[in-house]
Design a protein around this nucleic acid. Structure first.
Lengths: 168, 168
DNA sequence: TTTTATTTTCAGAAATTTTTGAAAACTAAA
DNA sequence: TTTAGTTTTCAAAAATTTCTGAAAATAAAA
């Protein structure tokens, strides 16, 4: 397989996966393109490679920069801005996970907590059953969150490996 | 807060969360409705409560049944089919996770594996760098999968708690 | 069998999301 | 300044996804 062909497949696959998980296809493709690039790329190069409009390219890049998984890179004597992807997989995977948790999961958990509180005093069988359902979701989420925090907030890159051995 | 109001908020919140994560809003709402119901519900009741069409209700229910997180329930002397949600949170959360992994993640990982193999022999700096990027994603994914399998394939419901203590 | 209740299907409509592209807003050099 | 290169914005168009509703299929009762 030709290298360029392999890179293209990586970009396409990544874009499709993003779509299925609620990440814009263009955003995922720009990310994949920068991940597979050896050099910083300008907006024009990204537009050309992915065959997308300037507006789309600009917005997608900005989102990735906001996520903190793509960096701006200044090249001396050039007025254009260039972009580079964070290549440390654990680093960017963590950032995406933390960002989505904060933005999408945390508000939901807050509401569930509120619902749980507001149904706590309901003594009807129906009320008690519903309260338990909501409470159970909360407890499981809290536990998973605790585990995720442990995994992520420890700096060591081989934490996962250690954990796997620990669990054997 | 009125119990019915709390349930409605649960349904709305769950539907919105689903949308953000690539799960159809109606599907997520039907799931939430059944989770919050004390009794089995018929298609007509679901249509009425969520104000959705018969086609939509039917398809959403079927998808949940296919996922294995909603069960059909026969009521003697009644021709209608009724539906109940799996109430054990760990059970349904696991089923959703396993299903999405198989359907959406595994095929992507297979392709990445193939890309990785096909770029292995490329000795150019560009080829080596790209190969490493893909390989790194694979390794991290494999590690996370191993951990998830350990968490999920052990039957004990308090495994998470044990693990949390273990990691302290 | 025929009738009646219920479920499933799916083409088209509606809603939502994504993308475009050109104008406006910047920014740095001349 | 003014000019030229670059980035940002956003209304409208396009693409995609979701939903509807009525007809077809299925299944149980008469």
């Amino acid at each position: 397989m030709e290298l360029q062909e392999a890179k293209q497949q990586f970009i396409d696959t990544w874009g499709a996966l993003g779509s299925e998980w609620g990440i814009n296809k263009s955003v995922a493709q720009v990310h994949a393109l920068l991940l597979s690039a050896s050099n910083p790329m300008s907006t024009d190069e990204i537009m050309e490679k992915l065959v997308i409009s300037r507006g789309n390219a600009n917005m997608s890049i900005r989102q990735l920069v906001d996520y903190g998984i793509v960096y701006k890179k200044h090249i001396a004597g050039d007025r254009k801005e260039y972009f580079v992807a964070e290549k440390d997989v654990l680093k960017w995977a963590m950032k995406i996970a933390v960002m989505r948790k904060q933005k999408e999961l945390d508000p939901v958990m807050d509401i569930l907590k509120e619902i749980s509180k507001n149904t706590e005093k309901d003594k009807t069988p129906e009320g008690k059953e519903f309260h338990k359902t909501v409470k159970d979701i909360q407890v499981l989420t809290d536990q998973l969150e605790t585990i995720a925090n442990k995994l992520f907030n420890t700096s060591g890159g081989d934490l996962l490996l250690k954990l796997i051995k620990l669990m054997m």
